[in-house]
Design a protein around this nucleic acid. Structure first.
Lengths: 335, 335
DNA sequence: TCGCAGTTTGGCAGCGCTGCCAATCCGGTT
DNA sequence: AACCGGATTGGCAGCGCTGCCAAACTGCGA
């Protein structure tokens, strides 16, 4: 690299054009491989780019380009603490990186007002698409998204109406399938152990589906323990201990997710309770560790990576649609 | 919202100015609360913005503004599958969201060439800063970063020289402290169980520190098991099972991280091996579940969130510096 | 030799915004 | 009434790039 530029000024396309001895438009055409140019022009431009260490300015490029939308996508997720969302991002980035489209992320902390603020902030970068989590948003969020005219994809949840495209699975159906599994296995005195449902609306939908299926079988939840704060093995352990002191004859527990279930499993180990003989455990998500447990956790595997990938695939298509990717019940050995 | 705009055209600052009956510069001043304007002007602009549903175009704003650098930061991490990196992002976004600065992320999959490509792609958005993981990069990556003139922060690892600012802890020191702990507790036949070291260089540094401290005590690793692919509880379980068939008299295992250690713990449970009586286990990271285990995992807690926060704090300062945030050895009950 | 269709090229307006500057306004003085 | 300093304001160039257009050039047949 031949730092012939003025100090403090970055190399621009004009510099490249001058160095290569061609016009700006030619440089632009070569760099984007768009339109026709001679082999000779291509070589001279490539040489100049390498020599000057030119890095294109996409702010300018996007501003000038058609539709003025940037080759970026905005993503709003509620949290990074729950493995599910990094997994979602993983699926997304694996698909988008191939096209060289980066994600601009915002974390809402499960707060709809924060989500609205983030959507506004992200839209100000004129992303090619906006990816949201879940179907529940402030009216203002919906209005912003619609007025922007960009593709909107809502991920994870299909229980309800979306703004534009929706990719996910039915949380209600997951809850119902989980309940039916427990019922089939003969469990009758079943409790629910979850984290804060006001913030995690999807967990609430699973619980609703669970209770509904229980009701269809003439059963009801024996007890319900909601721990404040986010889900974690620690909350699961403490929650199960609380549940057990309260109700002595439970035979199964449905957890809001695998992290909570792992904590519950640890509580059983610590208390010497046989699983599933004395107490059955059922989780949600199908995380990595579930299969490695001495007794594989009974849970439901969700297509998290696939949701990310399909959401990325949605960006190129147009028109509203819903993609239900389903889920897989893993029988495991704990319920 | 009063869709008085031409269809397909987004509202611009000029539209706002016309609607509010003021000049463009006044609108700009009001929106950025920069420079002086009358109360009356402020109100009229606010009203027009609300009425038109105006969302500023930051592509244009950044391009026109001083230094032309965007209120964005570029982040390159090697993976989203290992909780460490989402945690890092979590610390980062919590600090940056307060300032309304979003992160543009790239995932390198531990591939230096991919990292270089991502750095180039991210720099083309003229971010206010570039955050990288670790200290080992392609020469091209370093050159790009330096030529860009933006603040560069390398996160997690302090064992070596950085480009600009460095925030993290010493992985070698972690390894050494872990070894000394095991030695102090009387363990002598110690094995290492890790995942692919060629890709996870930081795990390699921990192992080097571990072996060095072992050497200082006149000891050496009894065995070493490296599982291909990323770390996971499944890999930890399979790895420990392999290790145990090979060496019958091990008394402790040092794992590349807590995920692997959890798998090892599961293997012990399944095989009925007393922990730590028959076999001691030592991890790395201090993840959530470690404290919830029936026997809390002996491990080292790393300041992942704090690294993210401090990295964000670095962005406002200038000049090279290294912030070593240290780590905490958690004695636990497994070693 | 000229003309023609196709290819290659450079000039330049303009994307939406900010920063600068000069113009205007306001209230109180002289 | 003329004047003054500070607060407020609008006009406009220009950030780096792309898209459009017309100009220049190419090879080839008439």
């Amino acid at each position: 690299m031949d730092e012939t530029q003025l100090p403090g000024r970055l190399v621009t396309l004009t510099d490249v054009a001058r160095t290569a001895g061609v016009g700006e438009s030619t440089v632009s055409r070569v760099l984007r491989n768009h339109g026709s140019y001679s082999k000779r022009a291509g070589e001279r431009v490539a040489e100049a780019v390498a020599r000057l260490g030119y890095v294109p300015n996409r702010l300018a490029g996007s501003l000038a380009g058609q539709g003025a939308s940037a080759r970026l996508v905005g993503v709003v997720i509620p949290s990074l603490a729950n493995v599910v969302f990094p997994d979602l991002l993983r699926g997304l980035t694996s698909a988008l990186d191939a096209e060289g489209i980066p994600c601009v992320i915002g974390v809402s902390d499960y707060d709809p007002d924060r989500e609205e603020a983030l959507v506004a902030a992200l839209l100000s970068w004129r992303p090619a698409a906006l990816l949201l989590t879940g179907l529940e948003h402030n009216p203002g969020t919906v209005a912003l998204a619609q007025a922007s005219g960009v593709r909107v994809v809502e991920m994870i949840d299909t229980d309800g109406a979306g703004i534009d495209a929706v990719v996910g699975f039915s949380n209600r159906a997951v809850g119902a399938a989980s309940a039916r599994h427990l019922i089939t296995r003969g469990y009758r005195r079943i409790a629910y152990l979850g984290h804060d449902l006001r913030v995690d609306l999807r967990a609430g939908k699973r619980l609703a589906g669970f209770e509904h299926a229980l009701g269809e079988a003439g059963l009801a939840l024996s007890d319900k323990e909601i721990r404040p704060g986010p889900s974690s093995p620690a909350a699961g352990r403490a929650g199960l201990e609380a549940l057990l002191t309260r109700v002595s004859d439970l035979d199964a527990v449905y957890f809001s997710n695998d992290d909570m279930a792992l904590g519950g499993y640890f509580a059983c180990l610590a208390a010497g309770l046989a699983v599933p003989g004395r107490l059955a455990l059922f989780g949600f998500n199908g995380l990595d560790f579930a299969a490695a447990m001495p007794q594989p956790l009974s849970t439901v595997r969700t297509p998290r990576l696939e949701i990310g990938r399909q959401a990325a695939a949605c960006l190129t298509s147009a028109g509203p649609k819903t993609i239900d990717l389903g889920f897989e019940l893993i029988e495991g050995a704990t319920a």
